[in-house]
Amino acid sequence: MQVEVLYFAWVRERIGLPREMVETTATDVAGLVKELQTREERYALAFSDLSALRVAIDQELTDFDAPLKGAREVAFFPPMTGG
């Protein structure tokens, strides 16, 4: 399946892209992360510590074990600092 992957804050800076279309065979977020990690050094670096990352599917905060089925948009970012 194809999914749009978005990156924010230092994740975006490390990967060097705000968003990209990704062809994936993963069934959950953790699987997608594994695929991305093996791509290039900059991805491995961005995804080296998952405890420092949060994930949203279709703009809803979720967990790394969430299924990807039907997802259009997956976003990775550091913990939020609003307010």
Binding site: F8, A9, A56, L61, A75, F77, P78, P79, M80, T81, G82, G83
Partner: peptide, 10 residues
């Protein structure tokens, strides 16, 4: 807003 609104400050 601090922890659940997707803002990041640099």
């Amino acid at each position: 807003l601090k922890s659940c609104a997707p803002f990041w400050k640099k």
